[in-house]
């Protein structure tokens, strides 16, 4: 059980992790690989004070190393569910369950998206996690939708355990995908069937399949936490970075513009200090 789970490994999340560790709280940072962060691809960060000629990757690596050195735990997995019970959060990160008392949402800007048929067939052929549900689809036809190297690896895993895989992406290039897996660029996807999934429509073309793995890089906070208040499409927070849910804080791009590193870092620190104060108060009470 961690004191604080930080959802997102960008500047806001890493700043929050650093501040929480300085205050001796246990911290888990749940995020995609650092290389998937938009900042990582930035050649030059011209406006972060103190480091005038630094690249995005160097800055992110330095922040990550600092948080790690201070003792933050890192879980490089996609967070798929957040359930509150018995005074704590149960966070489903693919096949791992992480328990934490407080949450800091720092996952950047993530649009809420659902494909047609997705909800109807969830658990009846639609899955969000290859390592969790792959075994139900051995020797069967599945399509995998993904945008990241992690998703490509999950598709390879499905192939290895005996699924017949087609990979769909909006991104160019096969990346780490095995040569034996057909790759299709797509724009729209619809899941169809009767009791269970029978086919998908990819840009209107039919592909017969028994399973559909939707491996989005991130789940929108509002889909993870029903009841989370938004303001003009961003997570609503006050100056203490509190959301409307007790023990849940937010920082960085997910709270609104400007989408800048300095703003994200500042908010990350405030969110962590607020979470620390909330945890300490609960302990006393």
């Amino acid at each position: 059980m961690y004191d604080i789970a930080v959802l997102g490994g960008g500047p806001a999340g890493l700043a929050a992790a650093v501040s929480a560790r300085v205050r001796s709280k246990t911290v888990a940072v749940i995020s995609n690989a650092m290389t998937e962060n938009g900042l990582y691809r930035s050649k030059l960060v011209p406006n972060y004070p103190g480091v005038p000629d630094i690249s995005g990757s160097a800055l992110l690596e330095a922040m990550h190393a600092q948080a790690e050195k201070l003792g933050a735990g890192f879980v490089e997995k996609r967070l798929l569910s957040a359930v509150y019970g018995n005074g704590q959060w149960y966070l489903g990160a693919e096949d791992e369950m992480i328990e934490a008392r407080a949450l800091i949402l720092a996952g950047g800007v993530v649009r809420s998206e659902r494909f047609a048929g997705e909800e109807k067939f969830l658990g009846r052929g639609v899955s969000y996690c290859a390592t969790c549900d792959g075994m139900f689809f051995r020797e069967k036809h599945v399509v995998v939708y993904g945008e990241t190297a992690a998703a490509e690896r999950e598709a390879n895993y499905l192939r290895e355990i005996g699924c017949i895989v087609v990979y769909l992406s909006r991104r160019d290039g096969k990346g780490a995908l095995a040569d034996t897996i057909p790759f299709l660029r797509m724009r729209t996807l619809e899941v169809c069937g009767e009791e269970t999934v029978q086919r998908v429509l990819v840009d209107g073309e039919t592909i017969q399949c028994d399973g559909v793995f939707l491996l989005r890089p991130s789940v929108a906070p509002v889909d993870l936490l029903p009841g989370l208040a938004l303001e003009e499409g961003h997570i609503a927070v006050n100056r203490a970075m509190e959301t409307n849910l007790p023990g849940v804080y937010a920082a960085g791009d997910c709270t609104g513009k400007p989408y800048q590193i300095a703003k994200a870092v500042g908010e990350g620190q405030v969110a962590a200090l607020s979470a620390v104060a909330w945890l300490d108060q609960r302990k006393d009470g």
Partner: peptide
């Protein structure tokens, strides 16, 4: 049993 009831994800 899982197959009979179309259970294709856990937990269901």
């Amino acid at each position: 049993i899982a197959g009979e009831f179309n259970v294709m994800g856990l937990p269901t």
